[in-house]
Design a protein around this nucleic acid. Structure first.
Lengths: 253, 253
DNA sequence: GGATTGCTTTGCGGTGGATCAATAGAGTGT
DNA sequence: ACACTCTATTGATCCACCGCAAAGCAATCC
């Protein structure tokens, strides 16, 4: 069976159709640009339904579990933590979102958000009303496809996290998170080796199924082994190769 | 902000638009019926793109990781295990699928299946070519919506598994899986208290992030405590309340 | 039937990460 | 500068689960 061709006209060089950088913050479409192929007219329509909200302060919620679902959201600047409550009332962090990423798609199935999301720092978030996106999608097939892909990607990422939680050691989990953040930084043309973690150790531990203490210990050990240098939330990856070894479990010491 | 109204004409009583039971196997649309509201003409169109494949034997693959993505699949009879490979080559079970459920949606994002799926027993699987579904969705808005919902549901379920793996003990994980299977049986009008597990202990352990031995020990303990009776793969839930306690971690002994 | 193979159960010792506790540091407001 | 609070680090102990090993049991094949 023949392989399906990639979406026609898909942007390939990390620029959107406005010829903006992926991480551009002036274009309202920024978070959607990368894999999107649209006619100019369609593009204007899409742009018109995206609402640019006021900046959110650290700790402010974008939406909360159980709230009526109306929109998905795109991060334009800052960072976001998504979490849900387990039956025992404890918090479970389900993901971190950085500029150019979409969140809130777990609310579609029941017309109600299945998780909460809050800003980890002062952030700019775009609101994309889902009903209008839905209508637009029926008229613009490539947009429909794009959203199917975004949701599918979310599924894939969740499954990767499942694998991480199910099979990997504390070292591997922390290494994998750092590499993931590093890669996402690179995608935004930012430094892949030095960055600031916007979330607390507690959030990291919660996300990775570890305690704060274990996360802290792993950071200390990694520093001692020369994989990276840690200054509270400032991380500098010193040896990517070793860090990859740590992530795959093949680190010697 | 007003709450979005539910999809107009949505089936509410567990019957599809052919007035079949949810679990009907004679209707090719069975796995899609429950939440679907379509005009008769649309229904025929949808039915015409769904392909009924030959029965799969136990162990046969529906698709494999890395294969070109062309279709999603609906289970009509039997059961399916989905799994992916971790970087170290070990297997990670990401889900079990029963009649009326859809799988393969993780392949959409990269036009390539992100996981493999195989029949756990002799099974009937419908193939739904995604390109044709895509076209159809642009013409039938409620179908588009329905597929968004299915994918969103997959995300929610993955996140529930993440919570399970991250925060819960072996007892809680096993109890949760049994309750999930029980609930899915009930949805198909089958017994919620007595059923046969189609998957091996190894699969269960792999899915839940536990070893075979631990799974086996938990089954034995649950039996000793009178929560259920276990005869290899035949499970009979003896005390649902206690099992729920076990799932929430409030089991006394 | 007997042998082979694969799956499940049970026992026992080891260990990675949780838990408890104490300290140190960073951030915030006065 | 101070006190106060929140977050991070480090140490010591403990336990749930893993890993190995052996035995029991079921299905399949010759």
């Amino acid at each position: 069976m023949a392989e399906p061709s990639p979406v026609a006209g898909e942007a390939r060089d990390g620029r959107c159709h406005h010829d903006h950088q992926v991480s551009c913050t002036s274009c309202r479409l920024a978070p959607l640009c990368l894999p999107l192929a649209l006619e100019t007219g369609d593009l204007e329509q899409l742009e018109s339904i995206i609402q640019r909200g006021r900046p959110l302060q650290k700790g402010e919620h974008i939406y909360q579990e159980g709230q009526a679902f109306t929109s998905v959201y795109a991060v334009r600047a800052g960072s976001v933590k998504a979490y849900r409550y387990a039956d025992d009332g404890s918090e479970q962090v389900t993901g971190f979102y950085f500029p150019g990423e979409i969140l809130g798609m777990d609310g579609i199935s029941r017309n109600r958000h299945a998780s909460s999301a809050l800003a980890l720092e002062t952030s700019a978030i775009c609101e994309i009303p889902f009903e209008r996106l839905n209508e637009l999608s029926t008229r613009i097939p490539s947009l429909q496809r794009h959203f199917f892909q975004l949701m599918s990607q979310e599924i894939t990422e969740d499954q990767e996290l499942i694998t991480l939680l199910s099979k990997h050691s504390a070292d591997q989990r922390v290494a994998a998170l750092l590499l993931s953040i590093s890669a996402r930084n690179a995608r935004r043309k930012l430094s892949a080796t030095a960055f600031r973690l916007p979330m607390s150790r507690a959030d990291i531990g919660n996300y990775l199924g570890l305690t704060v203490e274990t996360v802290s210990r792993v950071f200390s050990r990694f520093q001692k082994l020369g994989l990276l240098s840690v200054d509270s939330k400032e991380i500098a990856i010193a040896d990517v190769a070793l860090l990859r070894d740590a992530a795959s479990g093949t680190l010697s010491t």
